[in-house]
Design a protein around this nucleic acid. Structure first.
Length: 574
DNA sequence: GCCGTTTTCGGCCCGACTGTTTTCAGTCG
C-alpha cells in the first residue's frame, strides 16, 4: 500500500475508532475522524508535503498533534500511539463496531464480559444465547445483532450510483401513487451524486405521516423494517439496500432537504455560520437564537439566504471550499450535460463493442452529439480482440467512407491504444499518425511500484501521438484499487506536453474521481469526459461523468469536448 | 485534538428511534 492521502486517512480514522473503544474524550475522537475526512479531500499528496517540509497545519482540522502523526505515518507507515492502543484493545473489535446497532459502549461490554474480540466470537456467543443475558441487552438486541452480521455479509460494498437509481426510481413512483404525499425528494449522497451510495434517504411532506409511513413499509420490495415512527422510518430492501424515509412539515421541507442532503461536513459548516449570526439551523428551519422564531425553512434557497449565502448545488456540498466560494460569491457555474458536444471514447465490433461504427454514430447523433471518437482496442488487449496496425488501417478506411455521408456530424478516427510496461505505445507511430486523435490507456501491470509506473506513463506521454490519457488511475470501484502514481506530477506533465486527461463515465470506473477533477481544474488542465461505451445503450452514461465532473467543480470551460469538432482538433494538436 | 472579529481556555451540531427500562442510554445520521 502506497502512503497516499487515503492511506494516511485510513490510519488516522482507525486511531479515532480505537480511541472510541477506549472511551476517550468524544471531541478528541471526533477530531481524528474529521481530520481523516479532511485528508481524503486534500488535492495534494501529504507525503510529498512532508518530504518537502511543508506545514500541514494549513489545513483546517489538522493541528499540531495530528500533523506530527502524519509525519510519522509518512516515514514509518504507522505511528506509535496507534500501535500502543492496539496492544491494549484487539483491533478485531473495530469490525464488530462496524455492525449496525453496535457502538463503542456495547462493543466494550461484549469484550469485557464475554471476551468477544471479533465477529466470529460474536456469532458463537449469539448461538449460545449469551448476548441476551447481558445487562442492557436483551432477546431483541441479540436478534438484531444476528441480522446485522448477515446484512454485512450480504451487502459488503456500497452500491454503484446507477444501481442505486434502479432501486430508487421505482420506489419513488410507488410513493407518488399515494395521495397523502405532497412533496417527495431523495436526499443524501444520492442527491449529491456520489459515485457510490450507502443508503437512500427520502424526504416527504404530506397530510398524514402515519399513512405515508404505512404505505412506505408496505412496499413490495421491503425485506425488513428497521424502525418505524412518525417522522422517520427505515427499511431494508431485498438485496440489502437501506432506505430511510422522513416526513416533515411543509414549512420545514427546505431545511430538512438541506439537512438530509448533507454532507455532514457541509452541515457542520452551515451550522457554524448560523451560530455566528445568532441563528440556529436544524432540520426544521432556521431560527433566531433570541426568541426561537423561525425565519426560514420552506425552501433550500431560503435557508441559504438566511445564512447570507447564495444557493449551493448538492454536488458541491462536501466542505471542499464551497462555503468560502459562496461567501465570496465565487461559486463555479458547473458543467451540464447539454454543454458536451461529443464523446471521445467508444468501441465498435472491430474490437469488443457490440455494434457497428454506423450504429454507434447514429445513436450518438440521436443524443445530439456533433462528433464521436471510435476507439477500438489495440493488439495487446487480446481478450477484447485488440486491433493490429493492418486491422486499424481497415477501420480508418471505413470511417472515412462513413464520414462522407454526414454533413453535420463527424466520426474521429481514433484508438484506445495500450501503454506498455516500458512506456511505449502498443501500435507503431506510422499507423497512429493516420488518426485524428488517440486515447492511451493502461490495461496490464497495474501493480508496478510508483517509480516504475510513473516512468512508464511519463515516457508514453513523450510520444507526440499521445493525446488523451484514458481512465488514468485504472481503478474499478469496489474491485480494483487505483494504480500507484503521483497524480500531481502526471497533471503537470500533461499540461507541459499538451496532453489531456479523461474522466471515464462508466459507473464502475468514474476515473478520474472528483478530487482529481478539482486538482486538474486548479492547474488549468482540461478534462475529456467520455463514456467508453461498448454499445449504443451505454452512450447516455455521459451523465454519470457529468455528475462526477460537477462534484469536481468543473465548468464547461474546463472540459475539452464542450468545443466544436474543429476547435477540439486544434486544441489537441501537440 | 482543534480552534479563535467575544476566546490560548472552554467550547465542540443535534434530534429521532429502539430496546430495555420505569426515565434513559446507546446508536444513528
Amino acid at each position: 500500500m502506497p502512503i497516499n492521502n487515503n492511506y494516511i486517512a485510513d490510519v488516522i480514522q482507525e486511531y479515532g475508532d480505537m480511541l472510541d473503544l477506549d472511551g476517550a474524550n468524544p471531541f478528541k475522537i471526533r477530531a481524528y475522524r474529521q481530520a481523516a475526512r479532511r485528508i481524503r479531500s486534500i488535492t495534494r499528496e501529504l507525503a510529498e508535503m512532508v518530504e518537502e517540509g511543508e506545514n500541514l497545519q494549513q489545513f483546517s482540522g489538522i493541528g499540531e498533534g495530528i500533523a506530527e502523526k502524519i509525519v510519522e505515518i509518512v516515514q514509518k507507515g504507522k505511528f506509535h500511539q496507534l500501535e500502543e492502543i492496539k496492544n491494549k484493545i484487539p483491533s478485531g473489535l473495530l469490525e464488530v463496531m462496524s455492525l449496525e446497532g453496535l457502538g463503542p459502549e456495547r462493543v466494550k461490554k461484549l469484550y469485557k464480559e464475554l471476551d468477544i474480540e471479533n465477529i466470529d466470537d460474536l456469532e458463537r456467543a449469539i448461538n449460545k444465547g449469551k448476548i441476551r443475558e447481558l445487562e442492557g441487552f436483551g432477546k431483541k438486541t441479540e436478534e438484531n445483532i444476528k441480522k446485522s452480521i448477515k446484512q454485512k455479509e450480504q451487502q459488503g460494498n456500497r452500491l454503484f450510483y446507477n444501481r442505486a437509481e434502479e432501486y430508487t426510481q421505482p420506489l419513488l413512483e410507488y410513493m407518488r401513487k399515494l395521495e397523502s404525499t405532497n412533496r417527495l425528494a431523495v436526499a443524501g449522497s444520492y442527491r449529491r451524486k456520489k459515485e457510490t451510495v450507502g443508503d437512500i434517504d427520502i424526504l416527504a411532506t404530506g397530510k398524514d405521516s402515519e399513512v405515508i409511513m404505512d404505505h412506505f413499509v408496505a412496499y413490495e420490495d421491503v425485506e425488513d423494517i428497521i424502525s418505524k415512527g412518525d417522522t422517520k422510518s427505515s427499511v431494508h430492501l431485498r438485496g440489502g439496500l437501506q432506505v430511510d424515509l422522513r416526513v416533515v412539515a411543509e414549512e420545514s421541507y427546505g431545511a430538512a432537504l438541506n439537512y438530509f442532503t448533507g454532507s455532514q461536513d457541509h452541515n457542520i459548516q452551515t451550522r457554524h455560520i448560523a451560530r455566528e449570526k445568532g441563528l440556529k439551523l436544524n432540520e426544521y428551519g432556521v431560527f433566531r437564537e433570541s426568541n426561537q422564531k423561525s425565519i426560514a425553512g420552506e425552501t433550500e434557497d431560503e435557508v441559504y439566504q438566511a445564512l447570507g449565502l447564495p444557493y449551493i448545488v448538492p454536488e458541491l456540498r462536501e466542505n471542499r471550499g464551497e462555503i468560502e466560494a459562496a461567501r465570496n460569491n465565487n461559486l463555479p457555474q458547473l458543467i451540464e450535460r447539454k454543454d458536451l458536444k461529443g464523446d471521445l471514447q467508444m468501441h465498435s465490433q472491430y474490437s469488443d463493442g457490440g455494434a457497428t461504427i454506423e450504429e454507434m454514430a447514429q445513436a450518438a447523433q440521436e443524443l445530439g452529439h456533433e462528433y464521436i471518437g471510435i476507439t477500438d482496442h489495440s493488439q495487446r488487449v487480446t481478450i477484447a480482440n485488440g486491433l493490429d496496425a493492418d486491422e486499424l488501417a481497415k477501420e480508418i478506411d471505413e470511417i472515412d467512407r462513413i464520414n462522407e455521408k454526414f454533413d453535420d456530424f463527424r466520426i474521429f478516427k481514433s484508438v484506445e491504444v495500450d501503454i506498455l510496461e516500458d512506456g511505449s505505445l502498443d501500435l507503431p507511430n506510422s499507423i497512429l499518425k493516420r488518426l485524428d486523435l488517440r486515447v492511451c490507456c493502461i490495461h496490464y501491470k497495474f501493480n508496478l511500484p510508483r517509480e516504475k509506473q510513473m516512468l512508464r506513463i511519463l515516457r508514453a506521454m513523450d510520444n507526440p501521438y499521445f493525446n488523451i490519457f484514458g481512465h488514468p488511475t485504472a481503478r474499478e470501484i469496489n474491485k480494483r484499487p487505483p494504480i500507484d502514481v503521483d497524480m500531481g506530477k502526471i497533471m503537470d506533465a500533461a499540461l507541459d506536453k499538451g496532453v489531456y486527461l479523461e474522466l471515464n463515465s462508466s459507473p464502475k470506473r468514474l476515473d478520474l474521481n472528483d478530487i482529481h477533477c478539482k486538482m486538474a481544474k486548479e492547474r488549468g488542465l482540461k478534462i475529456v469526459i467520455s463514456t467508453d461505451a461498448h454499445n449504443p445503450s451505454q452512450l447516455p452514461n455521459l451523465r454519470y461523468g457529468i455528475n462526477q465532473a460537477r462534484r469536481g467543480w468543473l465548468e464547461s470551460e474546463d472540459v475539452l469536448n464542450t468545443r466544436s469538432a474543429d476547435k477540439l482538433l486544434e486544441m489537441i494538436k501537440r
